[in-house]
């Protein structure tokens, strides 16, 4: 383990379940201190990737390195901790007992009272786990993950099934804890979570990385508006030369212009060409997400 080892290094990770390829040659490098959202629709291979990252599943091909070592090594030394989606708690223990018990599995931990407070569950310390809400149980999992004060924290869809308030409380706890230098990787299919909490978004689809960039870069993919029109024999170059135009695409008789200045494009189309059925739509992160993660459209990849 050296100074320069990435927090996470996945290379050519592949996992198949029968005829289904869940993860398909996925590679990813995360530097220490990054807060990365692993964003994709259900079934994109996020959980399978997380399982392999943590050493809970064996890759069919490819390698996993955490701070330069194996996942098992990272777990044994308390370098990595994880908050999994569901399960993994004993209903008959109280919240505090669960944390105390888990603390004894490590050589050295943060004080139990401290992690309870940081996870925002100090007030329910004596409540049996079986009587805690889903959100409270998730914050308990977070408290357990905080015990070893890990350098890498992995969260697998941590807010699935929570109501809006539960999600907000959970992220508030995570935010409050954003210790300098801790690397965080969280899988999610909520765009707004990725947008609000990550510095970098890795978009996955069908077990592959389809886009990887800063939150701003990913949002840029979705910036501006799209002008559609029916225009046989459209002059692509002329359209591309208009101010604010980012991309021009011709599909049969149709033309599709992505632009920051939809007025200029519409004016051009209507006054200088024979275009008809002009239609202007705005794109948001949701569209970028859909565009990048839906089968029918071509994926675009921007450099990290």
């Amino acid at each position: 383990m050296t100074h320069s080892a990435p927090a996470v290094e996945l290379a050519g990770l592949t996992k198949t379940f029968g005829p289904v390829t869940a993860v398909d040659g996925l590679s990813l490098r995360i530097a220490p201190g990054e807060v990365v959202a692993f964003l994709g629709p259900n079934g994109a291979g996020k959980t399978t990737t997380v399982d392999m990252l943590l050493g809970l599943a064996r890759p069919d091909a490819g390698t996993v390195r955490i701070f330069g070592g194996t996942p098992a090594d990272a777990v044994r030394h308390g370098l990595v901790a994880a908050v999994m989606q569901t399960g993994g708690l004993l209903k008959d223990l109280t919240v505090a007992e669960t944390v105390r018990m888990t603390a004894h599995f490590h050589a050295r931990t943060r004080p139990v009272a401290e992690v309870l407070a940081r996870a925002g569950i100090a007030d329910i310390a004596d409540r049996p786990v079986g009587r805690c809400s889903g959100g409270q149980q998730q914050r308990l999992r977070f408290a357990l993950a905080l015990l070893s004060d890990p350098d890498l924290m992995v969260l697998d869809e941590p807010t699935t099934g929570m109501d809006v308030e539960g999600r907000r409380d959970f992220w508030q706890a995570i935010r409050a804890d954003a210790r300098a230098g801790r690397t965080i990787l969280f899988a999610t299919h909520y765009l707004d979570e990725a947008d609000a909490y990550a510095d970098r978004i890795v978009l996955v689809r069908q077990g592959r990385v389809v886009a990887d960039g800063t939150t701003a870069e990913i949002k840029n993919l979705a910036a501006g508006r799209v002008v559609r029109a029916t225009l046989p024999g459209a002059d692509q170059a002329a359209l591309a030369a208009l101010p604010g135009v980012r991309a021009v695409e011709v599909r049969g008789d149709g033309v599709l212009v992505r632009t920051d200045d939809s007025d200029a494009v519409a004016r051009h189309l209507l006054t200088r060409t024979a275009a008809r059925d002009v239609e202007i739509t705005s794109r948001n992160l949701e569209d970028a997400f859909l565009a990048l993660t839906t089968d029918s459209l071509t994926a675009e990849t921007i450099g990290a």
């Binding site: 383990m1 100074h3 320069s4 201190g33 030394h77 490590h106 300098a180 230098g181």
Partner: peptide, 27 residues
């Protein structure tokens, strides 16, 4: 979420403290 500009500085120093528990965690 804000991240410190020199994120890698703390981790290696702390790693020296990190050892597996005695008796494999039996207590």
């Amino acid at each position: 979420m804000t991240v410190a500009t020199s994120p890698a500085t703390t981790a290696p120093a702390r790693r020296a403290d990190r050892r597996p528990p005695a008796l494999g965690g039996f207590s």
